[in-house]
């Protein structure tokens, strides 16, 4: 239904306080949502990193910041190593790697590591977002 709550909770999750109100009122700049709601009525959906098995962003990364986590298989981005060259943005088929608010590095979905269910899924009021493993 394109309510955008996944973006709101993603912002809160990636804020310093992890608190919705504080993230929106007190944190400047406000963190960037790692998910993007796309709307073309009547259709709408939320897009975030698919954590590809053979990720083009990892192969293309110029700095080594983007990597496949050996234990979890997630595509993880190390902002401290990122040089902000935007090569990963160019090669992501889903357009889910974003220029972060600093303009210096990228930001992407980390599937809310450390939590059982990502914030976007947990807070989707219509249960449109589900969290499951798919095999291509």
């Amino acid at each position: 239904m394109g309510c955008g709550l996944c973006e709101v909770f993603c912002i809160a999750q990636h804020s310093k306080s992890k608190d919705l109100i504080k993230a929106y009122k007190k944190e400047h700049p406000r963190p960037l949502s790692r998910v993007r709601v796309e709307v073309d009525r009547p259709l709408s959906f939320s897009v975030q990193c698919r954590h590809c098995e053979d990720p083009p962003c990892v192969i293309a990364c110029l700095s080594g910041a983007m990597h496949l986590d050996e234990e979890t298989g997630l595509v993880i981005h190390d902002a401290d190593k990122c040089m902000g060259c935007w090569t990963c943005v160019m090669v992501c088929p889903y357009g889910t790697i974003r220029v972060d608010v600093s303009g210096k590095v990228v930001a992407k979905c980390d599937l809310c590591q450390g939590f059982d269910v990502p914030a976007c899924v947990a807070n989707c009021p219509n249960e449109a977002l589900v969290y499951q493993e798919v095999t291509p």
């Binding site: 993007r36 796309e38 709307v39 073309d40 259709l43 709408s44 959906f45 088929p93 889903y94 357009g95």
Partner: peptide, 21 residues
């Protein structure tokens, strides 16, 4: 401005991006 996976025709979106509706 509105271009995205959402504006790509559904059959193609499914085939290329493995995204159903």
């Amino acid at each position: 401005e509105n271009f995205g996976l959402v504006t790509i025709p559904a059959p193609l979106r499914k085939k290329l991006f493995m995204m159903g509706d």
